[in-house]
Design a protein around this nucleic acid. Structure first.
Length: 315
DNA sequence: AAGGGAGACAACCGCATGATG
DNA sequence: GCATCATGCGGTTGTCTCCCT
């Protein structure tokens, strides 16, 4: 027994939007707003479209300040960083990239960035775009700096004396989102170390709320409007992602990566995505050999670990 | 020049979640 | 507390374009 369709598919138009439809929708929303009711909007706007379709069209293409086209190195780095931290939470990732939509990022990841990480594409392969990943945004507002996007840099010293420096902001998510997928060990390390982690991470706090995102980040609200600002999560709902978990995960999975992948991925990754790290391969090898290894990494779908393991190896 | 394959991206589908009565 | 409905979200599919043979 399936769910009832949101609209009568026989009476609504499907497929690509025409310029006329775009104009109708845009003009209606600019004039009247969405009214908080996407279902009723198409009829009011004189469109033979499903409300969901209108919402998607508006959010992904018609609303102001949408940015299409090449992703910058900075954006690549942010996407990779967040994907490793939170997985395919495209809406959250999109909230960190001004003007980008979750759909855009998802497509970009699936068609390009993932392949880059997997080492399947040569560094300069691009059909219609400048050689990846040195692409730059043309006629687009400048991307926010790392500082703007990540907040303060963080230095974390793992169990060994090796200095492990990262510019990636720890990520916070509502605990409910993780409760269903986290393992017991994860939950412990993820949520019980808040005090210690707070010594290291510096999320922006504002009246008992934790905020992340840049000034220009654009997230969508329930009425389809563009929220210029930050995604807000109640402080009591957040957990701090432990770098210790990431680190252990890296150690535990790096042995599964073949040399070709390491070299190919590592070359691009080290040159492009990350700032230089304060450790070399020998350090990592040493750490691997000395690691006792119970993977405490948690917020990752085990089915997707390969590409993430590659990331962690070089991270 | 034509056809096929691959890549890119727009759009759809259906489940999860939150809001409301 | 429960049912219903609308919206949000991520996965998947469809279609168009480009490139290669």
């Amino acid at each position: 027994m399936g769910r009832a369709p949101c609209c009568d598919k026989a009476s609504v138009k499907r497929g690509p939007w025409s310029p006329e439809e775009d104009t109708k929708l845009k003009e209606y929303i600019e004039k009247h707003g969405t009214g908080g009711n996407w279902i009723a909007l198409p009829q009011k706007a004189g469109l033979k479209r499903c409300g969901k379709s209108c919402r998607l069209r508006w959010l992904n293409y018609l609303r102001p300040n949408i940015k299409h086209g090449d992703f910058s190195d900075e954006e690549d780095r942010i996407i990779c960083s967040l994907y490793v931290n939170i997985g395919s939470r495209w809406s959250i990732i999109a909230a960190q990239l001004p003007g980008r939509t979750d759909n855009d990022i998802k497509n970009y990841w699936n068609t390009k960035l993932k392949k880059k990480l997997m080492g399947l594409l040569p560094l300069s392969h691009h059909r219609k775009q400048p050689s990846f990943p040195s692409s730059t945004l043309q006629n687009s507002p400048p991307s926010p700096s790392s500082d703007q996007l990540y907040g303060e840099y963080c230095t974390y010293t793992p169990l060994t004396t090796t200095s492990f420096t990262s510019n990636i902001e720890p990520f916070s998510l509502p605990s409910s989102n993780y409760a269903s997928t986290s393992t017991t060990s994860v939950s412990h390390s993820f949520y019980q170390n808040q005090d210690s982690m707070q010594q290291c991470y510096h999320p922006t706090r504002d009246n008992n709320m934790l905020m992340f995102g840049s000034e220009g980040s654009c997230s969508t609200s329930s009425d389809g409007s563009c929220t210029q600002g930050r995604e807000i999560i109640k402080q009591e709902e957040i957990g701090y992602h432990s770098y210790n978990n990431d680190y252990n995960f890296m150690l535990n999975h790096s042995n599964n990566i073949n040399d070709g992948e390491k070299s190919c991925f590592g070359e691009w990754f080290s040159q492009t995505l990350l700032t230089p790290l304060d450790y070399d391969l020998e350090d990592i090898k040493q750490l691997i050999s000395s690691s006792s290894s119970t993977a405490s990494f948690n917020n990752v779908d085990e089915n997707k670990t390969e590409e993430k393991a590659m990331y962690y190896y070089y991270y």
